[in-house]
Simulated assay, not measured.
Amino acid sequence: MPITVWGLAVAQALLMSGNILLVSISALVGQELAVHPALITLPIACQFLGLITATLPAAHLMQKLGRKTGFVLGNIIGLLGTWVALQGLVASSLAVFALGTFLIGIAIGVGQQYRFAALEACAPPLHSRAISIVMAGGVLAAIIGPNLAILSQNWHAASPYAGAFYGLFALYVLALLLIVLLPLPKPTISAVKSEIRSYRELFRQPLLMAAVASGMIGYGIMVLIMTATPLAMNHDQHDFNATAYVIQWHVLGMFVPSFFTGSLIRRFTTRRVILWGCGALLLSIAVNLTGQGFWHYWWGLLLLGVGWNFTFIGATHLLTFSYQPAEKAKVQGINEFCVFSAAALGSMFAGQGLVILGWAWLNLFAIPWILIVTLLIWRLKEQTPSAAVSDQP
């Protein structure tokens, strides 16, 4: 595997460490600075807004100027965002802090292209493994992010959360230096100037529809249930330590399978791995519906993480068969926009959904969406050439 792929995996780990760090403290900062309860989640909402805003422009910018230029600009925006957010904390201004998280969200949105950059750094038969290696960086992030949030509490006198942004700044500096040193491929003239199909023509492909839907539903349902779980556990009198333990194992379930997901795709086809992911999501819901004890939540979220891993990595790999080189920015950009819009909706609906529907009905609400993806992927058996559901180009 080329060194570029391993370097991008480390960059992904640094990016996601910062993301986990930010998620760990943003709601707490919002609670401290907000003048109205409805504004508590404003920083998180702005982060998602920044992420979604960046997806399409980042993909097109990288196609024209190259991955390195795009990633460098993204990290610089992230560094600016950490400084702005820190000023918001020092000044006790929720608006300034939210502006900082918006800029950080843009940096996170640009960084979502790391896995696509890994595809360009290796031969097609290695694509599924390259995606898995980059996503496996999340295991390191699951360790760095929460611990950095804890260790940084005494780094700044103004706020117990301000120190976290020094840590976040350091992570972005390391990622920037790494990207500058990596031999990322440059855009080719043919990829920039070739004919590009319209969105209507592209989405007439059942394969592209299935890939985008798999990424959207896998991510959206994961965020929906993951975000609602701490609230549900609190309602059922589980203490914070139990909740933190459940979330920790959920994150491990999300990223540890990345070490072998690529091998499973090569051996059993992308289509089958996505179907297994849908099955794991459904099994997670089944466990959640059987009870609300600690081990129900633990198994439910562990399976939810595995289901996300299989559907997301599988969808990313399947997507590569749906476009020509000149169309990659257009397809990758719209895919990221759709997937992270679904994640944002899941996060925003989780709290209100739990209050309105309750834990059981919130889980039941997710089932039809998973079944739709299952049907779309299942139909590819007859509608897609064998190359599109295997690891061969």
Rank of each mutant, 00 (worst) to 15 (best):
L22W: 01
I40E: 06
I40M: 08
L15C: 10
G30L: 02
I20Q: 06
S26E: 10
S17I: 10
C46M: 15
L14V: 06
N19T: 10
M16V: 15
A9V: 06
Q12L: 09
L14F: 08
V29P: 00
S26V: 11
V10K: 05
P37K: 13
L22P: 00
I40T: 12
L8A: 13
P37Q: 10
A27S: 13
L33W: 02
S26Q: 07
T41F: 03
V23C: 04
I40H: 07
Q12F: 15
A13T: 07
L39V: 10
G30K: 03
A11R: 00
N19Q: 14
L39K: 04
L14I: 08
L33G: 02
S17N: 11
A27I: 13
L33R: 03
N19L: 15
C46Y: 05
E32R: 15
P37D: 06
L14D: 00
L14Y: 00
L21C: 08
A45G: 11
A45R: 05
L33S: 05
G7Q: 04
S17V: 09
M16E: 02
I40R: 10
S24N: 14
G7E: 05
P37G: 08
A34Y: 03
I44S: 12
P43R: 12
I25A: 11
S24W: 05
I20C: 01
L42D: 04
